[in-house]
Write a protein that binds this DNA or RNA. Structure first.
Lengths: 202, 202
DNA sequence: GTAGACTACCGAATATGACCCGAAGTAACA
DNA sequence: TGTTACTTCGGGTCATATTCGGTAGTCTAC
């Protein structure tokens, strides 16, 4: 059920108002925003938008407009920001219950995900800068060449590229020519997940 | 079930009070905070907020307000993917009605946004790689040092950093030492927006 | 071209919830 | 057994949503 131009504009307004205030606008506020002289106009539009399945309303209640997820307003997932990770430095403890909202299509179907803030320049040649957020798919194993969160000796976490060498050792390769790769035995490290996405805000 | 303005304010207060003290406020404290003369008012509000599923209360017990985890499936916005932009190359026409879902907190309150796919290495030193998606805030002007989408001579779009020189010309600075800055007169270029975020998927 | 069907709008009357009060009632707890 | 806190009741006002009866304009099908 496609929306008309006007209906689309109104749905957009509902979205931004709700995002800003935490509650839906009243009919009068909608009318004022679109320069309507009658609330009946608002009512009719909302009725049509509801009939098409984009919002849900409860009868005769104030500001009772619920925006349903759709193509226009798709969902995002709130992933926990577990801390920061830097080359050779331990993961900082999660300061609080902070979360980061990530577009739904960033995460894989199966498995858990979390977010880490990258510290330092160790992956700079893979275009991951200091302060970037990486979306991590929680997995205990990786394939050659994947970017992993690696815990070494159970104490120190880093983000590196993962390579299994012919002699059975693991090479953890930074993307910074000034840094040397780390070689460890398989039992000295654990894969804590692989990086599936990067987010940066200016 | 969305809240009204007042209900939202009260829920906010419950949240901050509980975060600070470790326990919920009494009715009297709520009444005092909102300058109510009757506890009945508090009671009615809490009843409504509970009916809408944001809190849970046990009958007649002191400070027995439990704030339920609002499964705030935080939303994402579907922004149009207008095409690709590379150094010195025109914006490719939008192939279709493709959209990209972006976390809501990526976009500014006001104004329109769109997404472009970056081609080439021109911003590589700012850690924007070939294939990355940039979220652009549609604006006709920029401040010094901001990363802009610049249209030169109405034909060729690039992503560069924007600097206004003392002689009035504009310097469009790539983040790649192998590329030279572009100097243009102000009337030779238009700012089509500033980059507010970067997304990358592996 | 014209008859539906639909979108978009208006103004006024009406209905109901949101919001507030004071006072009396009741459960919990020390 | 009080004291404290929450609950219920009856009463208001105002904000807000709903309904009704209209006017236009724009499509589409016959």
């Amino acid at each position: 059920m496609p929306l008309t131009r006007r209906q689309h504009q109104i749905l957009d307004y509902l979205n931004s108002y709700t995002a800003e205030h935490g509650y839906a606008p009243s009919f009068e506020e909608i009318a004022e925003h679109f320069n309507y002289n009658s609330l009946a106009t608002v009512h009719e539009h909302l009725t049509n938008i509801e009939r098409k399945g984009y919002i849900k309303r409860s009868y005769n209640e104030s500001r009772a407009i619920e925006i349903l997820p759709s193509d226009l307003v798709s969902k995002a997932v709130e992933l926990p920001l577990l801390g920061a990770v830097a080359a050779g430095m331990p993961i900082e403890a999660a300061t609080s219950d902070e979360t980061v909202s990530v577009p739904e299509d960033f995460v894989r179907r199966a498995g858990n995900h979390y977010v880490l803030r990258v510290r330092g320049q160790s992956m700079i040649e893979d275009s991951i800068a200091d302060g970037d957020l990486v979306v991590v798919h929680d997995r205990p194993a990786a394939d050659n060449g994947e970017m992993v969160i690696a815990m070494i000796d159970g104490a120190s976490a880093t983000v590196k590229r993962y390579y299994r060498e012919r002699d059975g050792r693991i090479r953890l390769q930074p993307a910074n020519e000034q840094m040397a790769p780390i070689y460890v035995r398989e039992d000295q490290m654990q894969v804590r997940g692989i990086v599936v996405g990067v987010l940066r805000r200016y």
